[in-house]
Amino acid sequence: MTFKYSLRHIRRSPYQTLSAVLIMVITFFMVSIFIMLAFISSGILKHFETKPQISAFYPNDTPETEIMEIKKEIESTNLTKEVRYISSKEAVQIYKKNSSIDDIDPNLDLVSDKILPPSLEISAWNISDLRTLKSIVEKKEGVKVIFIEEVVNKLSSWLSGLRSGGLVLLILLVIESILVIWTIIGMRISQRRYEIEIMHLLGATPWYIRAPFIVEGMLYGVIGSVIGVVTTVILLHSALPGLTNFLVGIPLLPLTPENFIKTIFVIPGSAGIDGVPLAPISPLFVLLLLGLEILIGMIIGAMGSYAAVFRNLKK
């Protein structure tokens, strides 16, 4: 019965309904974009973070023991995920493996261990520690350091800015949605004052009168979230080929249920990279996204309409 009354309210004022639904669609479109962005940015960042962040090339005449001393010193800081020593001979092997082009014989001695220097490849737990590690590496004279701190830092700060900005935008949109629902339900209550007065006099319980307005607000949330998610998925699906070409060589997180759960429910950005390019969007992923946003929509709608009911129907 409550649901029937809510639908009647919606039917009777289609323009108010349209404005309420539109604001919810915009909010949930942005929520969906933000969630997708969280996935994609996690993928990009992880790609760079998993690469060695410092490569230190020592002069060929540097004794291995000296480099191993430096390695030990770096490891003793406990700031590193991995410190790998690559001797000149290993470097040649890697070079040969990576340069096995059809028309060049990789066994030719054009590149020998006298040319390729020994090196240390260092990955840190935390990008902010790279500068400390770099200063240890540079103690040896003549060392050449390739350092990706700036790239990762810039990317990291760019993505963190994007996330923070997105989050602020989302919070503002959510507040705006609550206020719009509040206003529209408040107008509905004012329009139905006469009917409400009659219902009071006929012996309606307070909940009987309030419930249709709260359900109406929740319905706006549900409709808005469904349209918002569907629009985002359609847009992303059509943008997929272009996006994959644009980010060539950078593997992104596939939009799978596993990653969804890891990203949404555990720690944002914690989903592991698996080297798979941006995959076709899994239907289960869409369902999970839809379920989450419908829940958020219902909460936003209920908050807005409850505020209106509380303010306008105190008696």
Binding site: Y194, E195, E197, I198, H200, L201, L202, G203, A204, T205, P206, K315
Partner: peptide, 22 residues
């Protein structure tokens, strides 16, 4: 309490000069 008044109103029928019909 105001929230309990519906119990009494259910025992009372009211007829107004202006009918108060929808």
């Amino acid at each position: 309490k105001p929230s309990e008044l519906y119990k009494i109103r259910r025992e009372i029928g009211i007829v107004f000069q202006d009918f108060k019909l929808l």
